[in-house]
Design a protein around this nucleic acid. Sequence first.
RNA 1: GGCGAGGUAGCUCAGUUGGCAGAGCACGCGACUGAAAAUCGCGGUGUCGACAGUUCGAUUCUGUCCCUCGCCA
Length: 300
Amino acid sequence: MTQRVVAIVGATAVGKTELSIEAAQRLGAEIVSVDSMQIYRGMDVGTAKPDAAVLGAVPHHLVDVFDPSHDVTVAEFRDLARDAIDDIGERTVPLLVGGSGLYFRAVVDRLSIPPSSVQVRGRLESEVDTLGTESLHARLVELDPDAAAKIEPGNARRIVRALEVIEITGRRFSDNDGWDRYESVYDLVLVGLTRPRDDLYARIEARVDSMLAGGLVEETRRVAAAGMGRTARQALGYRQILDLEEAEPAAIRDAIVRATKRFARRQESWFRSDPRVAWFDISEPGGAEAAIAHLEAGGR
RNA sequence: GGCGAGGUAGCUCAGUUGGCAGAGCACGCGACUGAAAAUCGCGGUGUCGACAGUUCGAUUCUGUCCCUCGCCA
């Protein structure tokens, strides 16, 4: 019998955290955060991390696990999350909550993520600089036409990874299927939270303002001084503050808002394509209640 | 009031030696398998400030007017 797991996904600022606390209390669940940045210690205001009181009231996993100097990988995150899920399963039901689409699928889906090699990847990355992205894409066309057809010729990041996998494993990147099947390893009940765009955007602006008022700049300085890896460094807010150090506060604020809205759209696009998601508009009266009821009923 | 510089996509601007205009950003959509809060792809008809003149044809030249900014009064 497969383990039952309930989950809440949705774009940033849609209201996942608030609803998840309510749901966890109702279900007696423990929360597994599926958030690529809340996993870092010290990155609190910028990641809208639940405060100490909330973390104390409802057990949370995968929050504050690493220092920002550590670059988490998808496979590493998946292993930690699955361990947490197994552990919680001994006691109660795990409630996954988050907006990191790739991490979510890695945790929940029946996928095999091929290995990585810093040497091979480093070399390929330097080849991007010397030979150009198009040249590496041409190589991918030779080695794995199916993968090349699915990866945009300008997307150096994904081209490098595909070539890396081919080189390390000796197999084609596209042999790694399962991606389109959305097959869960758990007995999954999945709820997606939405709001009308205008509403979401207004919430994002308000949230960025309150983060800035809540000391995001100071937090960024502090965390950066202690050392940030390239993963943590690219977190929304922190990245803009670090990149635009000389800019006017208003310009930094606007840059963060824009980037966050763009991110929210990408998240929606990501989760929209997952057929397992049952969507609830929580801006509507009763929307939040319906979402929780859906989780309680086990999706039935 | 005088002089100067401008008024072109939601914003900042480019451009057309006269042939119904184009970049970045914004915005919308999509892809996404060990960096993913990343990375990349697709989507641009807008009285080219208004009116008149020249012209086969004006956003482009000429004139007048309106508006904005700067300097001088």
